[in-house]
Design a binder for these strands. Sequence first.
DNA 1: TCCGTTACGGTTGAT
DNA 2: TCATCAACCGTAACG
Length: 331
Amino acid sequence: GVFVNGRPLPNAIRLRIVELAQLGIRPCDISRQLRVSHGCVSKILARYNETGSILPGAIGGSKPRVTTPNVVKNIREYKQGDPGIFAWEIRDRLLADAVCDKYNVPSVSSISRILRNKIGSLSQPNQYENGKQVSPQSSISYNHIYPYSYPNAMSPSGTKMSNPPGVPVTGGHVSISRGWPSAHMVSNILGIRAFMDPSAIASAEGYAPKMEDWGSVNRATFPSAHGVNGIDKSAIDADIKYPQPSSTLSSYVPACAYSPSNQYGVYSGPAGSYVSPGHHWQAQGTSLSHPGGGVAMHPSDIHSSMAFKHGMHNHTLISVTLQLLSIINEI
DNA sequence: TCCGTTACGGTTGAT
DNA sequence: TCATCAACCGTAACG
């Protein structure tokens, strides 16, 4: 006969099989007459006798999801109540609390995935709601400066922290502001605190910059320029792209401009978090993080570009920027 | 020879 | 968009 492998027989043939069987025709004869394997005839007739239907079963798809919002909610509560709880313990509690039964309780791996993907992200806003965590602007600012954020579970030195991956970071255990400061920081290298310490900025200005503000500030503050102190931009770019240990500029730039992890990505250019779409990675020269590309501006440029940011009073930033400019000028 | 069962390679659709 | 997974399919072979 003609059949499509993996696909059900046409309903007409299935119906015909049942009709012929009801007429008393033997399955072997039906198989020959309709040119269908006898195993297929046997299966269809057995199903018809059992269910009364000639239709094939549902093909494809997945089982109903067990990770319902209610289950996720309960898992979150368990985790918040006991941050050290194991996935299998959560599973047991879901059963004990009758949130699930044995047929729809999530697997341990599913619970782990929920903790990693859902609970973790859902818990983030709570950090701000609770008001006991690091101020938003700190992480925001660092996120901008270091678009390649440090993994939560890792300390700056690379040592494992107490929170396993996927476990919501609560209570300020781990924050970027705590995890980041290192000998590579601009503030440590240049002796500038306020620039890298958002709390200093916030306390001085009483203004909590949004992440997009920071990005805009930096993009607006450092428009593309052709060079620094007469140094051709292309030469600088080449230096940035292929930093040499002997290059004074590059010896500063990686430490200032790139996070430790980002330094590995200097050539690959995954700088999309702060580079406008469609821009080549070198466009990051327009940001503070790439001083080689666009820091040849006048203080008036800085002031005008910053002033439009929601009335942000940026004396601190400006002074820091000027210090940076003077250093670069020396270079 | 008949027929129930099952391994196999395939399709499908939700995740 | 792609991979994975688990459901189903009919054929072919076995007993």
